[in-house]
Design a protein around this nucleic acid. Structure first.
Lengths: 230, 230
DNA sequence: TCCGTATCGAGAGCGCTGCTCTCGGATTAG
DNA sequence: CTAATCCGAGAGCAGCGCTCTCGATACGGA
């Protein structure tokens, strides 16, 4: 019954340890991860790491997927912990959870949402985990709509080409959410990303002392735009 | 009258040429600029470049400042070309100009607004040029307010700590713009950055065929939130 | 149980990077 | 005219990602 042989288990353990050390390096040294440094930290020689990851980019990809999942899990947990019939409360919970995760893991956030690494092209494995936060957000809108807790924006505000594009997204993920509301949900997701990125990367908010309050106020403005009742 | 000697002029010309070649490399090869490759392209040896830029980061800083200024100039020119008494028109003009510049210079945009380079700390020379786009945006609000073309949002919506922070910004740059309106202007700037970054970096909009229309729609939503009359 | 095979870590090495130092040649200023 | 300054070339250092080879080990089928 030991389908995973000893060697296979040791190998899986090795992969995990390499990722753990790499994540630590990412947190301290920043985004330019050195495979050699990781190997050195593990008492290995650099070529040995290549037994487990065919290239440095593959190591990065593994870290990216794990980071997406960690963020997605934090966001979904915050959403699940909120009152299901309070769309605005869920919206704030999700926004705060995303920001908290980003502030706690700035290097990983930069990996996910910063400028793409030059030669690096994100493989398809990442698109599923990457969609978890925005899907959570739109899920709040869907629940609020079906529960009659929010009134959708007028559909007429959407130009036809935009509606056509959003219709595909809508059918793929949220058949119940009309396109105009979906557009506002994406606006909220864009704003959330912008707020966090400015706080982490930029110098704009360097002069803001009360960042928590600023963040809450700005996400509150977006909640108003989306139409979440307060 | 030749205060700039021959050597000084040649030196300035050399600096310009190095920056031009580096900018070309940035556009083709991506963000990881190789000082040696730049030197090679100029028929020089790498150590010679160090006569003009003490380090690779200083070269990057020079490029960053120039990029900020190029973006700022594009934005300000678009604003100046619009009808001064049409805040919403100016808002759209600025947004479109910023997006157009970013799409035309993706690598430079990534340099400005992407994840910060690990060991790199932006020097103070960059903060002035970096403020030009957001200042242009808030300038539109100020003009609209003094011309009576837009009604400011209720001040009561601002919590005290946020107002205190924004009051400093307000006094430093726009004494005429009340804090609540300033907050909405910053929301607009954040959204603009988010929209452009998602389009350039992310895979979210990969499925959107009509990106121009989507961008206009989203910036229109933000114009509504800011209170620009349409 | 034994043996061929697959896996693994170590080491050497290639070409690249940013950066430093030294050494001649050219240009400038006094 | 001379002395100080600037400039480009070259060698070299340490680090990087990655490849290849070579013994040592563990595995699975006969």
């Amino acid at each position: 019954m030991s389908a995973p042989s000893i060697r296979a288990r040791v190998r899986a353990q090795m992969i995990d340890e390499i990722k753990a050390v790499a994540r630590r390096h990412l947190a301290t040294d920043g985004a330019n991860l050195s495979l050699r440094a990781v190997a050195r930290d593990m008492g290995m020689v650099s070529s040995a790491v290549y037994r487990y990851f065919p290239s440095r980019d593959d190591l990065l990809t593994a870290l990216i997927i794990e980071a997406y999942d960690a963020l997605g899990e934090a966001v979904e947990a915050a959403d699940a912990a909120a009152d299901r019939h309070d769309p605005r409360g869920r919206w704030f919970a999700v926004c705060r959870a995303a920001r908290a995760w980003a502030l706690a893991h700035p290097a990983e956030y930069a990996l996910l949402y910063g400028s793409p690494v030059p030669g690096y092209a994100a493989p398809d494995d990442t698109i599923g985990p990457a969609q978890r936060p925005p899907l959570t957000l739109v899920g709040i809108l869907r629940d609020g709509l079906t529960a009659g807790l929010l009134t959708p924006p007028p559909e007429a505000e959407l130009p036809d080409p935009v509606r056509a594009d959003l219709a595909e997204l809508r059918e793929a993920f949220f058949p119940d959410v009309p396109e105009a509301l979906l557009a506002r949900g994406m606006a909220g997701w864009t704003q959330l990303f912008g707020l966090i990125s400015f706080e982490l990367f930029g110098r704009i908010n360097r002069s803001l002392a009360h960042r928590d309050a600023y963040f809450d106020h700005q996400t509150g403005l977006m909640a108003d735009l989306i139409g979440l009742p307060g």
